[in-house]
């Protein structure tokens, strides 16, 4: 049959394709490390990686490729516990690294002590993005509870950005009212003004900037600056509230993987590079607040001073905060169900 010849050819091509895929899989085993990270750090590490590789080559003569993997932070951490062979993990909240310790001892128990600043090379904070000229006159957290105002925040249940926003508002209200009851009341009013809960920070940005929904977007400072720079600086203004939360981004070497792959040294060097002046400059150029005072000074125009509190100082650490606010049936759920 004439029809059989093309069929056989297709089959042969199929076999070739499969064989190609298998060999391609095998070829990955050269010196490379995998950096598993959260969603919005892509651009940052895209710039970091080649500079680090060049530096590593100059120092040791070894060629190293840094591969990147990005996605929702909890999902990424989960992938590592399930066998995604990450050499380093770079996240935006510490519970996503602690889980690696809990499930399978993948990182050192004292991972926070392995690098400076509790292993956080940079920080950011929650700020407001408003429409040009700030027509609603939004200045501080207190303004967000005004009746009729629309506030866009990412979903705290699915987004680290959303969790920081919620906790920032809570911390502000805790200062003002002095009680949990007062804080809950305040956050309830704020959440009543939220018309859309996007899955992640970037979704919330799109809703606010592209769909014209809402009067104010609460998001990370680095996001706000990026929007002002890229998505339409002429259309938006950034407003710094009187106080906000310290969003430190933790990093760790996934030792169980690096020991198996023999990459511990280069993984450590990679993370150390983030704390070096060179790394810090790249970090600052991506709108994250660097730790290095000299670099911070250089970018001072971009990062106005703002009073911040950390989850550890004010809210009893992430573990307690998650259990109290974001677990199923906890305060956030109570507020949203009875809204």
């Amino acid at each position: 049959m004439a029809a059989q010849a093309p069929a056989r050819r297709t089959l042969r091509r199929l076999v070739t394709a499969v064989a190609f895929a298998l060999t391609a899989g095998g070829a990955l085993a050269q010196t490379s490390i995998l950096n598993v990270s959260y969603d919005v750090s892509r651009e940052l590490y895209k710039d970091i990686n080649p500079v680090f590789s060049a530096q590593w080559k100059a120092r040791t003569g070894e060629v190293v490729t840094v591969n990147q993997s990005h996605g929702g932070s909890s999902k990424q951490a989960m992938s590592i516990t399930e066998g995604l062979e990450a050499d380093v993990i770079t996240m935006n909240q510490s519970p996503d690294i602690d889980i690696l310790l809990e499930r399978g001892n993948l990182v050192a128990a004292d991972w926070r002590k392995r690098f400076p600043h509790d292993a956080t090379p940079y920080t950011t904070t929650s700020v407001f993005l408003v429409r040009k000229g700030n027509p609603k006159g939004i200045k501080d957290w207190g303004d967000l509870t005004r009746a009729g105002l629309q506030v866009i925040v990412p979903n705290p249940k699915t987004s680290g950005n959303g969790r920081y926003t919620y906790l920032a508002a809570w911390g502000y209200a805790l200062d003002k009212t002095g009680s949990d009851a007062g804080a809950k009341d305040f956050v309830t009013k704020l959440l009543a003004n939220v018309p859309v809960l996007d899955g992640g920070g970037r979704g919330a940005t799109t809703t606010f900037t592209q769909r014209d929904v809402g009067d104010v977007l609460v998001t990370f400072e680095n996001e706000a600056i990026l929007i002002a720079k890229e998505v339409g600086g002429a259309k938006f203004d950034i407003v710094y509230p009187s106080v906000s939360i310290d969003g430190s981004a933790p990093v760790a070497v996934v030792e169980k993987v690096t020991e198996k792959r023999g990459t511990t040294k280069v993984a450590e060097a990679y993370l150390n590079f983030l704390f070096s002046p060179e790394g810090q400059e790249i970090i600052a150029s991506h709108n994250f607040r660097p730790r290095d005072p000299a670099v911070l000074k250089k970018f001072a125009a971009q990062f106005p001073a703002i009073r911040t509190f950390s989850v550890d100082d004010k809210l009893g650490g992430w573990k307690a905060a998650n259990a109290k606010h974001f677990a199923d049936g906890a305060i956030y759920d109570q507020i949203m169900v009875n809204r």
Binding site: N155, V194, P195, V196, L197, D198, G199, G203, D333, M336, V337, R339
Partner: peptide, 10 residues
């Protein structure tokens, strides 16, 4: 769905 839903509880 997730982009268009609004995702407001209840």
């Amino acid at each position: 769905v997730i982009f268009i839903a609004g995702n407001i509880p209840m």
